[in-house]
């Protein structure tokens, strides 16, 4: 009995499938992120609203989304909500990833806002700005700088979490890989390569965010 014989030719022969899958993964993650960011900011601000009702609603959202596995959420959105709203697997995936990620972004945003010293809001309000002007012009820009590192982690999580949408049949990197494994029987080779592809995407994102961070820091210390 010989050991398993590796044959990575399956990778080079199917490069088009990987590329197509990776682009889909990036596309779905990016759209989900674009929806998750504003939603997360709104809910994060809701968590510290002066209105008790808004506070409770936002907290409930965060707790439920954090507490339910993404897999369950995706299945529920696709099979239950999707039936009413006529969502295909593509949009069900995007919505699922967006509402899930928004809960985590909300917590990051909340801690970021609360980390800005009180005196900043007071100074802004003292000069006659409304609460929202002070938030937009003074507090959020500073909160943004504080939350870049945890946000980066969250974005990376989103790209990796998107592999789960293969369970509801959305075409992306992981689903393409699964299909390829089924036809080629080369599971170790394919999954190893898939690991590299995910890493390449997330590491690139890390580097981009780090560059933004350093640019912001450099400007303030000039």
């Amino acid at each position: 009995m010989g050991g398993y014989e590796y044959d990575f030719s399956v990778i080079s022969q199917n490069m088009d499938i990987f590329i197509e899958g990776a682009l889909k993964t990036l596309e779905i993650s990016a759209i989900a992120l674009l929806l998750a960011i504003p939603l997360g900011i709104i809910i994060g601000m809701g968590r510290i609203s002066r209105n008790r009702f808004i506070r409770i609603l936002s907290s409930a959202y965060v707790e439920v989304m954090r507490g339910v596995p993404l897999l369950v959420l995706l299945i529920w959105i696709f099979f239950v909500l999707g039936q009413f709203l006529k969502l295909g697997s593509y949009w069900a995936s995007i919505i699922g990833l967006a509402v899930f990620t928004a809960a985590f972004i909300a917590e990051i945003v909340r801690s970021g806002i609360q980390g800005v010293p009180r005196g900043q809001m007071e100074a802004a309000r003292s000069s006659g700005m409304t609460y929202w002007q002070a938030m937009r012009l003074i507090v959020l820009p500073q909160a943004f700088r504080r939350v870049l590192p945890p946000l980066a982690s969250q974005f990376i999580m989103l790209i990796k979490d998107s592999s789960l949408i293969s369970v509801i049949g959305a075409t992306e990197l992981t689903l393409n890989a699964k299909n390829l494994v089924a036809t080629s029987m080369r599971s170790i080779e394919v999954w190893t390569f898939i690991g590299f592809v995910y890493f390449a995407m997330t590491f690139t994102l890390s580097m981009i965010i780090r560059a933004i961070e350093q640019k912001l820091l450099a400007r303030e210390n000039s």
């Binding site: 010293p117 005196g119 900043q120 007071e122 100074a123 802004a124 003074i138 820009p141 500073q142 700088r145 303030e220």
Partner: peptide
């Protein structure tokens, strides 16, 4: 005018 200035650092 505040004791701790409260300038906008950015």
């Amino acid at each position: 005018v505040f004791q701790s200035f409260n300038l906008y650092p950015f």
